[in-house]
Design a protein around this nucleic acid. Structure first.
Lengths: 191, 191, 191, 191
DNA sequence: TATGAATGAGGATTCATTCAT
DNA sequence: GATGAATGAATCCTCATTCAT
């Protein structure tokens, strides 16, 4: 009913600046980076930072949310490609790989979130990603490539345990070790 | 003649108390737990704590070292069993499982170590574990159970990414997902 | 247009309060006085104190600098008087006396500075004082009152060895003992 | 009446070791050196150190006392030489110089004593030094070399303000500046 | 609304001193 | 008597958060 609070052009701009700076700083210096330093990196005063995010926890949660949103976008794009005919297993693997690479950049963000007990604020985004990944899995299972037991939670489990802070070679090897567990004939007892 | 410098009885006891308390507290409250709190949990004064470990980093390193030593012991016992005729793959998997279960207790300790840049002091222990694991792998490869590409580093990679802070069900599922990558017929292209 | 960044009024006031309190506290209780106590004496929180002076060393250095500045002012005023016709030797002696009296208040500050290895930040002030004193000496030498060998360093040497922590009578006696060394016919062998 | 507590050979030896070590350590690292470190330098345990000196203050006082005793010895030797015919003023000056040189070594000891509010324990020694110096002064006054106003306290005043922590050149210059104040024709008005 | 100064609890660490062995 | 481990108050400093301008 009330008007949607007109311009706020700079407020929006500030929010973005802060979010970016926070991501960079946490990535670069770990979760113990100070709020003052984040503010400085964003060329804002601490007060402004606190106006946008009442708590450090809130800020970190927002950074994580942004990251999750990117993952969700990627997941949906991947699903679209599969719908258009791409092989599901290959796409899923590539998706996993991409996410891990991205995480390697955002390194400590997860740690920060965990350390602060930050709760993901926006469940919508997660559901979006979840739906897309579920579709990918189902497609792969229909192809007969992905093991029937595999669920979305398995993918999350792998995400959350990926060696994002290790060198690229380790990350690649890890993906290679982990992929068989998703495929049809990967069961040990299958031999 | 050979009494080893009389009165170290309580010092030894204290060292143990501190190490245990540190493990518990870090596990329970993360790496940012205060030294005072660890001291209190060990029923010691901070000074005592600092007499045994000159730095928080040193303390955490010691906790990690203790944990690593236990893993090394387990690895050697496992190797012994295999030498005595047990099937290598099954033993290795069980070993992995056991280590992860134990880690679940020590939860944040690794994180603390990493956050503080703690260096493992005693490389001997690591080598001990490494040798035992290498022997296990070789035995499994001789059995034709373990994939020829698998190395000790792979095992470490899995260790370090295990979801130690997740519920038991997740840990079990993770192990199931990851095992195929170690076995002979786990190659995707094998189908 | 040219307002100099509005609201520094209280910051300035606080800086002054801190500097004063620090001087008093160090004077009264020596260099080992705690930062918390200085803060309390200044009616400020420790944080404020650290915002103004990032280190105890910095704070002490600032206190010393303030003191040096006052000395420099006095030196210049004295030179001005001499330029206007006053007798140089008498003025120099009086100046020495005044500085020592002032020092008696600032007592342990020098010790604190030394103990903390505080470096004087503002060499300008020292040069200002040095120039003024040099002029005084030269004038006195032109008068034939001050011994030709006397240099600015001699004055500094006397400053730094003045018994600032002794009762007034001692300080006066010390000045009397030391003055002959500066005058023309003070050479022992001159007799 | 009771026997004088027989041997204690090692106790005596320990006391000496501690005193020496304390002197060295305080000289080298200032008054804030730890008791543990002094104990280590003396190759004793802290407990032993505390058996001999119940308090850090006591220890420092003892170190100072030892130093004062050496000065007293020198003073008496000097008086003896004057009694045997040496010129009093020259001897007094040389004595002053020697004491300052020695002090330069013991540097921070005085500071330590002051910082801890250490009271000189053995007034006998001081009286011994005082008597000798008084005799020297009187002899010089009888010679007509030393100004009639000069007292023992003046000498103490100079002692206590000597630039013991400055380079040798400064110490020499200081002595030159200060000597005229002690001699007969040092009065300004004498010209 | 943005700014940045102020707050003050909390953290790691030190060190004189005590006390069990 | 000697030893050295234990104690714990005290110190310097940091940092999330509040609030006056």
């Amino acid at each position: 009913m009330t008007q949607a609070k007109a311009p706020r052009a700079d407020a929006v701009r500030n929010r973005k600046k802060i979010l970016d700076a926070a991501g960079e700083q946490i990535t670069a210096h770990g979760p113990d980076i100070g709020m003052d330093q984040i503010a400085a990196a964003a060329s804002v005063a601490v007060g402004t930072l606190y106006r946008h995010f009442p708590t450090k926890t809130d800020l970190v949660a927002a950074v994580v949310a942004e990251y999750v949103a990117r993952v969700a976008d990627d997941a949906e794009a991947t699903r679209a490609r599969v719908k258009a005919g791409a092989r599901a297993l290959a796409e899923l693997t590539a998706f996993l790989s991409r996410v891990i690479e991205a995480s390697a950049t955002d390194r400590a963000v997860k740690a920060a979130a965990h350390a602060l007990g930050a709760e993901p604020g926006d469940h919508t985004v997660e559901e979006r990603a979840g739906a897309a990944v579920a579709a990918l899995i189902r497609a792969g299972q229909d192809d007969g490539d992905i093991h029937p037991d595999v669920t979305v939670n398995d993918i999350y489990l792998l995400f959350s345990t990926a060696p994002t802070d290790r060198p690229a070679a380790d990350r690649a090897r890890w993906l290679a070790l982990v992929t068989p567990g998703l495929t049809t004939n990967a069961r040990v007892t299958g031999g």
